[in-house]
Amino acid sequence: MINLNHKQLNVYKKSVELVSEIYRLTENYPKAETFGLTSQMRRAAVSIPSNLSEGASRKSEKDRKRFYRISRSSLVELDTQLEISINLNYLNNNNTKKVEKLANEVFAMLSNMI
């Protein structure tokens, strides 16, 4: 892997941790959700650190912030999918505490960067 500056950012580290937690949580989703909610949640989660990384590599502040906003939007999308998962009883408030904590921290950090 390339040793890049964005990998030292706490927001990057926490967003990568969030991705791992989402993969762990969605492991036991019903098979019927493999190409539905499971895939959607995983893609939204991966999009968070991916867009953060891409933004960090941009030279102009305007361009960087655009990618940080996309990253934050993916986090909001993921939050909606978590809520749907709870409503469908795929998850409950007990097994989402770590994800909620990480999501709130990442949201705050991204908002501060924007």
Rank of each mutant, 00 (worst) to 15 (best):
S74D: 11
L75N: 06
S74G: 15
L88T: 13
L88M: 11
E77K: 03
K62D: 07
N92D: 09
V99M: 09
V76Q: 13
K98E: 06
E21D: 07
E105V: 08
R42K: 02
R69T: 12
E61Y: 11
D63Y: 11
Y23N: 06
I86R: 03
N10K: 15
H6L: 04
V16R: 15
N93Y: 00
V99H: 04
H6N: 04
E17A: 14
R58Y: 03
V16A: 11
K98G: 05
M1W: 10
L102F: 03
I86T: 07
E61N: 13
E33K: 10
S15V: 11
K101Y: 02
R69Q: 12
E105C: 06
I84H: 02
Y29M: 06
K101T: 13
L4S: 14
L37F: 00
N94R: 04
N3R: 15
L88P: 05
N28L: 04
P49W: 07
K13P: 03
H6E: 11
T34E: 12
I84L: 08
L52R: 10
L102E: 10
Q8F: 08
P49H: 12
Y29P: 00
M41Y: 00
R66N: 14
N3H: 13
V16Q: 12
Q40V: 00
N95L: 01
Y68I: 01
V16N: 10
F107L: 08
N104L: 08
K7E: 15
S71P: 14
D63C: 10
V19A: 08
F35N: 03
E33N: 07
R72D: 03
L52C: 09
S15P: 08
Q40T: 01
S47W: 06
P30W: 09
E54C: 12
S39C: 00
N5A: 11
T26L: 02
F67S: 09
S57T: 13
H6Y: 09
P30T: 01
L102S: 11
E27L: 04
R72A: 09
S15N: 13
G55S: 13
S60P: 05
D63N: 14
H6T: 02
G55F: 10
K97W: 00
